[in-house]
């Protein structure tokens, strides 16, 4: 069993690492990491903008974004992927690479989820901080940037990391529209070997676990560092209590 796994890694490590590259498109683990990093890097700012739009006093901004978030959250990701994969080329006539389709769908989908996390963090702060900022003459955007968001995002680190982790895991769904990622490479290996699906997908599971675990671990370190800097954070001025960090690992 362990021999099989080692043998598979020895034979197919390059395919699992970079896919068909340089003879074909970049794939494998490299592509999974690129897709994950880009999705997270884009979904995060998008989610902050969506959250601010949902809290906006302008209905014209609030309503469409609220609708978008509700619809996106109420539809399975796989269906959104298939929709964008089949419908966007049909409507626009453009030949969109599957990687771009996957990236866009993930950013919209996870952006919607993350926006609710960000919004919850902002709302949970209570009105006192915003009152104080306004009383000192801060504009609402300035107050958001320097006073509300630094606290809201910090308080929500565990939930934000959970969403990042599920973003990484959701990249596997790119498989259905032929995004050449790690899952795609593993399934190619499996198709060649035919008799060792458990071993092949065990390797896959370990690699995904390692990626997600590393992310949570780094996040924990960052969170601890901020907590230490703000040591003594408690009492009347901080209505939100810290969520214990272990929740993150439970959601892995």
């Amino acid at each position: 069993m362990i021999h099989d796994i080692i043998a598979i890694i020895q034979d197919y490590w390059l395919l699992l690492l970079i896919g068909q590259y340089p003879n074909g498109p970049l794939g494998g683990l490299a592509n999974t990491l690129i897709l994950s990093a880009l999705s997270i890097a884009l979904a995060f700012p998008v989610s902050i903008m969506l959250a601010l739009a949902r809290l906006s006093k302008w209905r014209l901004l609030r309503w469409p974004v609220t609708a978008l978030v509700y619809i996106t959250r109420g539809v399975p990701l796989l269906m959104l992927i298939l929709w964008s994969y089949f419908l966007v080329p049909l409507w626009t006539g453009a030949d969109v690479p599957s990687f771009v389709t996957m990236l866009t769908t993930l950013v919209v989908y996870q952006g919607a989820f993350l926006s609710e996390v960000v919004r919850a963090g902002i709302v949970a702060l209570g009105s006192g901080q915003m009152d104080a900022a306004r009383a000192l003459g801060h504009s609402s955007l300035g107050a958001m940037r320097f006073i509300i968001l630094p606290q809201a995002l910090y308080n929500m680190i565990p939930s934000i990391i959970s969403t990042f982790v599920s973003t990484i895991k959701d990249t596997t769904l790119g498989y259905v529209i032929n995004v050449p990622d790690l899952t795609f490479a593993a399934s190619q290996v499996n198709n060649q070997l035919l008799t060792q699906p458990f071993q092949v997908f065990f390797i896959l599971a370990v690699v995904y676990y390692a990626i997600c675990w590393s992310l949570t671990h780094v996040a924990n370190i960052v969170e601890r560092r901020i907590t230490r800097r703000r040591a003594g954070l408690s009492g009347g001025a901080a209505p939100v209590e810290l969520v214990p960090a272990k929740i993150i690992s439970e959601q892995l």
């Binding site: 104080a132 009383a135 000192l136 003459g137």
Partner: peptide, 24 residues
């Protein structure tokens, strides 16, 4: 304009019951 209002507010100091210091 909100800019004017912010300027006006900055000329009126306000102290809250719950302090509302910025904990970060």
């Amino acid at each position: 304009r909100t800019r004017e209002l912010n300027l006006l507010r900055s000329r009126i100091g306000f102290v809250f019951q719950n302090f509302n210091l910025f904990p970060h």
